[in-house]
Write a protein that binds this DNA or RNA. Structure first.
Lengths: 192, 192
DNA sequence: TATATTTCTTGCCTTTTGTCAAGTAATTTT
DNA sequence: AAAATTACTTGACAAAAGGCAAGAAATATA
């Protein structure tokens, strides 16, 4: 039978050049958790203390703007690391929430555990940096899309890159993520 | 007389909790360079091998979209680290250029030098991570501004956060950075 | 199953932004 | 200084997106 943690081990092996034993050691430092649909990995005004490998399910981060409207700033799909960088690394209260869109399962470590691995295990050092680099790059790509693509192109892009999200997230999450109103997204969809 | 490298030393001390001696040691691993207005720190289709502390001057990154239009994706001001994360860390050719908007001066290290410090000097480890975290956060803030602010608000925000840019960059750089056309920015300015 | 709530769509009209083109102003090159 | 290039502005019109409200559809709750 396939040990479940194998997916995390493979994720590590795909992220950074380490041996399978090193990947296993890193994976074994993580702790399994389950998050039910609608529940929160992080609530605003708390410090994010979970560096979370999402094995199964979908999540999002959202916050409220000055008008009180809910803005979805990010979607997370399976086989990715989930955390709120500002709160987690700077140890400050988060403005954002991280919520499960569907039932989720994965593995977490705390900030202290991560830091100890970062300083004591060279393999994890490279892994941690690679994750930061990867997320930073995807944030920059999103920026580029926002300044260089129309709403329709951004929607089409989401459709191909994170199609699972389109199937499970309500329209209003997707609209605010794309930077348009619900009505506009609804009309866009009809057009397609 | 003030040793010029003091600005870099202070930058390190402001970024991460290390002793002045540790900061000096890190700073001394960097090499001074000068870049004239209009010259390039990085040209597209090359690998970015400079992790660059910008002490004096202004820079930008830009690339060409599918229509052949030049898109400015980032501005850099004094007392910041300048690099193209995808190319630098993944050792792949860059799609983007990094160019001096004004005469620039600062200090650089190569990828190999950075990596050796990263693995051998715990103080630098924390510094390197803190820079990645800082840039990642600022990219996320930019995303949030793009989906949640009007063009006028984004312009006003740039005006307060990077006013030096507004004084030295031509309108077309700023317009593409804000995700609007030259005409629209020109009209926005008249309104203000 | 009935009721309530949330999600999504659509019409009407307004505002914002884009496109294209012409013209002026400023800067750079010769 | 003249010529050429680049930067910026503006007008007229078109396209994209927003605001608001009503209603239909789907989902959740009682």
């Amino acid at each position: 039978m396939l040990e479940k943690r194998d997916l995390l081990i493979n994720f590590i092996l795909d992220t950074v050049p380490v041996t399978r034993d090193q990947a296993k050691e890193i994976a074994n430092s993580f702790h399994p958790i389950q998050i039910k649909k609608g529940d929160f990995l992080l609530r605003e005004n708390n410090i994010n203390n979970d560096y979370f490998y999402l094995e199964k399910g979908l999540m999002r981060t959202f916050l409220f703007n000055l008008k009180g409207n809910e803005i979805t700033t990010d979607f997370f799909t399976e086989n990715n690391i989930v955390f709120e960088v500002t709160s987690f690394f700077n140890r400050v209260n988060s403005e954002a929430n991280i919520q499960a869109i569907t039932d989720c399962f994965g593995y977490r470590i705390s900030y202290d555990e991560l830091n100890s691995l970062f300083h004591n295990k060279p393999a994890f050092r490279d892994f941690g940096r690679a994750i930061l680099v990867k997320e930073f790059i995807s944030s920059k790509k999103r920026n580029y899309g926002m300044i260089n693509r129309t709403a329709e192109e951004r929607y089409q892009n989401l459709l191909t890159s994170k199609s699972q999200i389109l199937q499970h997230a309500p329209l209003k999450y997707i609209a605010s993520y794309l930077g348009i109103t619900d009505s506009t997204l609804s009309r866009l969809r009809r057009k397609i």
